[in-house]
Design a protein around this nucleic acid. Sequence first.
DNA 1: CCCTGATTCGC
DNA 2: GCGAATCAGG
Length: 202
Amino acid sequence: MSWTDERVETLKRMWAEGQSASQIAKELGGVTRNAVIGKVHRLGLSNRNEDGAADPAPEAKPEPKAAAPKPAPEPKAEPKPAPAAAAAPQPAPAEPEPATPAPAANNFNRRPIVPAGQPLPPQPSANEISPEALANVREVEKKARKLSLMDLTERTCKWPIGDPATDKFWFCGLPSAPGKPYCEAHVGVAFQPMSSRRDRRR
DNA sequence: CCCTGATTCGC
DNA sequence: GCGAATCAGG
């Protein structure tokens, strides 16, 4: 694979969008993230520093996991439902397959990338979670690995526990089922089959 | 352990 | 110019 104009263009665009090198590499195909980073440096766009302003902004790495406007072969960013408390959270009342909902990202970018909508609009809470599942969740919370945001990966449970306004806040962090955002127990309460009450007739 | 970008250096 | 290996870090 070589850096054709088109590929370089894609690289530039995605890099400008804040995509990570690995994401870009995946999109392009045939190259590793190292190749992408190498190219980025050679192109001289390692940082989007506009010269002149010697503005020391040492701490500024939001690591935007923004959703791509156009290319979305593999949605990476997963929205973090924020159940009010550990009490009765119902992040995703789902019916079909909530594989990867909307990219409600936490993006503090300079340029508009994400419309930034409501983080958690619909909370019908018209579900009844089985007492067993709830008890299970309670139990699981005791075993939570208490991961920080940084430690979350695609295979760690992203169920929030505690009050985000305090420092008593962390994520479950237990091993999550492949492709699922939560561990077994939390998947159970997060994705309800939608019909706690089966309509008798129609 | 997962990930990120940065740098080096033989090709 | 290229990118794997390595480094430094969250």
